[in-house]
């Protein structure tokens, strides 16, 4: 469903992606792992068109992601941002129903609010959260609202950018379980970037290890521990010894 072919991206002399290749089959959950600053978020933003790659091709359903109707393209995606990226000035329900209140998916405000409350319930939040502002919520609740917003328009493809960063282990577990459940239930194609191994095991069907601007290893999550790849092994063990430099 999503294919990246020889994608390059540099910021001045920092060559972040150096020929990244990746395939994500439809209806599967791909988790990209890799150290901080290795280009995981850049790869994700290149697919969405938030960052333009210097070279290489990105296909979604066999079509060039950089061509065609942009609104229709983006309407297929939902995304949970690392810091949730909720709009401070809007109450929670309007954040969740943002897409349903404007643009091609617009519907009456009452209906949009009902859907928002239903999605909030789906991520374990009560209806009384709907009228609060994002700043009044804890980090974990903000992530859940971000997740509710990502799934509100029932997208075919969902991206999760560091979904558990900054959360305690219990809340991380809750978010991981929610992501797994929702992705399975919706039959969506998911791409998650993380360096949290508990998230990888909870969310992934397939795993890809990004280092040095290229995918070093990719395979089913069940084969990850026995991959034999030194990058993956070092990343799983968290050892300072190995091909990944501890000081970057």
């Amino acid at each position: 469903m999503i294919r990246m072919e020889n994608v390059h991206k540099a910021f001045d002399d920092n060559h972040v992606l150096q020929g990244m290749n990746l395939d994500i089959p439809q209806g599967t959950s791909m988790v990209i792992i890799g150290g901080s600053g290795t280009g995981k978020s850049v790869a994700l933003k290149c697919i969405l068109g938030l960052i333009k790659p210097d070279s290489g091709m990105i296909y979604v359903d066999g079509k060039d992601a950089q061509k065609g109707d942009r609104d229709a393209f983006l309407a297929r995606f939902g995304m949970l941002f690392q810091g949730a990226a909720l709009f401070d000035s809007l109450p929670v329900w309007q954040n969740v129903a943002f897409r349903l209140l404007r643009g091609s998916l617009k519907r009456p405000a009452d209906e949009a609010r009902e859907i928002a409350i239903e999605k909030l319930r789906r991520v374990g939040l009560k209806a009384n959260v709907a009228d609060r502002l994002p700043a009044e919520l804890s980090g974990g609740m903000q992530k859940r609202v971000g997740l509710a917003r990502a799934i509100a328009a029932e997208p075919e493809i969902i991206f999760f950018d560091e979904p558990t960063t900054g959360l305690d282990p219990i809340m991380s577990g809750v978010i991981n379980d929610l992501i797994r459940e929702i992705v399975t239930e919706m039959g969506a194609t998911a791409m998650t970037i993380t360096h949290d191994m508990s998230s990888v095991r909870a969310i992934a069907d397939n795993v890809a290890m990004l280092h040095g601007g290229v995918i070093q290893w990719t395979g089913p999550v069940g084969q990850m521990d026995a991959s034999g790849d030194p990058y993956v092994e070092q990343f799983i063990s968290g050892s300072a010894e190995g091909p990944i430099e501890a000081v970057r």
Binding site: K45, L74, A75, F81, A85
Partner: peptide
Amino acid sequence: VTEQIDALVTLST
């Protein structure tokens, strides 16, 4: 800086 602008784009806005 809080990625709200990126979020707007992903929400087709």
